[in-house]
C-alpha cells in the first residue's frame, strides 16, 4: 500500500506541475488594463513601473521558473491586488479555517441525516418514504441554489429573529448558513446510498440469505448497509477536503469571510499570485481526496487490493 501511495503521489506531482504551467500561461493572457485602478490617468512610466514590479515584463519561462522555485521553498508569494503586500499563506490560512469549520459542521449534520434518509428510502423502496425522499432529492437538485438560499435567509432570519448576516458572537446566526449548506449534501448522500443499497439488494447472495431465512434486519445491517457504505466511504475524504473551498452562494449571502467567493474575486481583480495559489490548493485537495478515498476504501473493504482497476466504483 505504501508503494502504491508513493507511486500515485509522484504521478500526481507531475500532473500538478503541468496544471501550474497551463494556468500560469492562461493568466498572462489577461488584459493589462485590469491590473490598474486608474488606468486612464497613468503615465506610461507609472504603467511600466507597476508591471515590472509585478514581474510581468519578464519572459514567460523566467516568471514560471521563479514561481516554481519559490513554491518549492514553501512561499506562495504575496498578493498583488487582492490584499496588497500581504503574504498569501496568511490570507488563505484564516479563510480556510472558517470555511472548513462551516463545512465540517454542515457535514456533521448532513452525513447522518443523509444516510438515514438513504436507508429509509432503500428499505421502503417504492413506498411512501421512498417517494417523499425522491421528491426531496429531485427538488433540491433542480431548483437553483441561489434562489432557495435567498428565501431561506429572508424568511429564516425573520423566524429565528436574528440578524440576516453571520456574526461570530451570535451563534443563532450560524444556524441558517449551516442549514443551507447541509440541504444539498443530504440529498446527495441519500441518493447515492439508496442507489448502492438497491444495487446490493439485487445481488444473488442477498436472495440466498433471504431464502435461508436470515432476519431482514440482519440482512440490512450486516450485509446491505456495510457493503453499500464502501463506495460511499470513497467520497468522504474528498468531501471533507473540498469543504475548504466553501460555498460561494452561502458565504456571500451571510457575509462569511471564507474561501467561497475568493476565486472569482481574485480572477476579476487579476491578482495572478492568488489565482495560482488557489489553483494549486484546489488541485492538491482534489488529488489528495481521491488518494485518501481509495486508501480508505481499501481499508474498509478487505476484498479490494491495490492492483487497481480504473473502472471500479
Amino acid at each position: 500500500m505504501l508503494r502504491y501511495s508513493l507511486n500515485r503521489l509522484l504521478r500526481s506531482l507531475l500532473t500538478l506541475i503541468i496544471i501550474i504551467a497551463v494556468v500560469f500561461s492562461l493568466l498572462r493572457l489577461m488584459p493589462i488594463e485590469g491590473y490598474f485602478d486608474n488606468f486612464d490617468k497613468m503615465s506610461p512610466t507609472q504603467i511600466q513601473n507597476k508591471l515590472t514590479l509585478m514581474g510581468l515584463n519578464d519572459p514567460l519561462y523566467k516568471q514560471l521558473g521563479r514561481f516554481i522555485w519559490r513554491l518549492i521553498h514553501g512561499d506562495l508569494g504575496t498578493s498583488t491586488r487582492y490584499r496588497v503586500g500581504v503574504p498569501i499563506t496568511g490570507i488563505l490560512g484564516k479563510k480556510i479555517l472558517i470555511s472548513f469549520r462551516f463545512g465540517i459542521l454542515a457535514m456533521a449534520v448532513s452525513l447522518p441525516l443523509g444516510m438515514l434518509l438513504g436507508v429509509a428510502m432503500a428499505r421502503g423502496k417504492g413506498k411512501l418514504a421512498d417517494k417523499l425522499g425522491n421528491a426531496y432529492i429531485v427538488f433540491i437538485q433542480a431548483v437553483p441554489n441561489a434562489v432557495y438560499f435567498l428565501f431561506i435567509q429572508l424568511y429564516g432570519a425573520m423566524l429565528i429573529r436574528c440578524s440576516m448576516l453571520y456574526k461570530a458572537s451570535d451563534l443563532r446566526t450560524a444556524i441558517l448558513p449551516i442549514l443551507s449548506l447541509a440541504l444539498p449534501s443530504i440529498a446527495g448522500y441519500a441518493m447515492w446510498l439508496r442507489r448502492y443499497m438497491v444495487d446490493e439488494t439485487n445481488k444473488d447472495y442477498i436472495k440466498l440469505a433471504r431464502a435461508k431465512g436470515v432476519p431482514e434486519s440482519v440482512i440490512w445491517r450486516r450485509h446491505v448497509f456495510r457493503n453499500s457504505v464502501v463506495p460511499m466511504v470513497q467520497l468522504i475524504p474528498g468531501s471533507i477536503l473540498m469543504t475548504i473551498s466553501g460555498s460561494i452562494y452561502v458565504e456571500s449571502l451571510y457575509s462569511i469571510p471564507g474561501m467561497g467567493g475568493l476565486l472569482v474575486d481574485v480572477i476579476k481583480r487579476q491578482d495572478n499570485n492568488m489565482v495560482q495559489a488557489l489553483v494549486i490548493l484546489y488541485s492538491i485537495m482534489g488529488i489528495l481526496g481521491l488518494l485518501l478515498g481509495d486508501i480508505l476504501m481499501g481499508i474498509v473493504d478487505p476484498r479490494i487490493s491495490f492492483v487497481k482497476k480504473e473502472g471500479s466504483r
Partner: peptide, 14 residues
C-alpha cells in the same frame, strides 16, 4: 461597516 457581497440586494431590507 460590515461586508456583504450581496449588499445591493439585502441592504434595503436591512
Amino acid at each position: 461597516s460590515k461586508y456583504n457581497a450581496e449588499a445591493g440586494t439585502l441592504q434595503p431590507t436591512m
